[in-house]
């Protein structure tokens, strides 16, 4: 089972690239995940990843990201006894592949702690797999959790 973004997936929610919209996305994810049988703990992990992914788009995606909606979809797969939920996010921002971003230094003390890079670390910690492609001038991110 891979988290490679598939060529076609159904956008089920569109939000503006605005921090005020991220909570609407979070509520949608919870309701939709529950309705599709995704365990609570997996929804929470996806919620962490989505919050950080959307924040990256809104804060760093540039004017292109802010000019177009962000599309989101949730797909649930079952294969050979393994279940997975894949959260798909598509945005029109600057090309950014979080799977290739350098791992941030992990602080061992307050003096070593640096702001920045925490979001990528959170996504990598909570997702089982992350896939990325750039298609038609849009970033496509697929975040998978399994149970």
């Amino acid at each position: 089972m891979t988290a490679t973004p598939v060529a076609e997936w159904a956008a089920e929610l569109s939000i503006r690239a605005d921090f005020a919209e991220t909570r609407r996305a979070s509520r949608w994810l919870r309701v939709t995940g529950e309705a599709r049988g995704v365990p609570e703990e997996c929804i929470t992990r996806l919620d962490h990843c989505m919050e950080e992914a959307l924040a990256n788009v809104i804060a760093h995606g540039g004017p292109g990201a802010r000019a177009a909606d962000i599309a989101i979809g949730l797909e649930v797969r079952c294969d050979a006894g393994l279940s997975a939920a894949v959260l798909n996010i598509s945005d029109a921002g600057i090309a950014f592949d979080p799977t290739r971003a350098p791992a941030p230094a992990r602080p061992g003390s307050l003096a070593e702690a640096r702001p920045g890079g925490l979001g990528i670390q959170v996504m990598r910690s909570y997702a089982d797999r992350i896939g990325y492609t750039r298609v038609a001038e849009r970033n496509r991110l697929a975040i998978m959790v399994t149970w």
Binding site: L110, A113, P115, L118
Partner: peptide, 14 residues
């Protein structure tokens, strides 16, 4: 809490 909240806490501690 998300990463931006952790950032606020880090800067507060500093």
């Amino acid at each position: 809490i998300s990463s931006v909240g952790l950032r606020v806490l880090m800067l507060a501690a500093k």
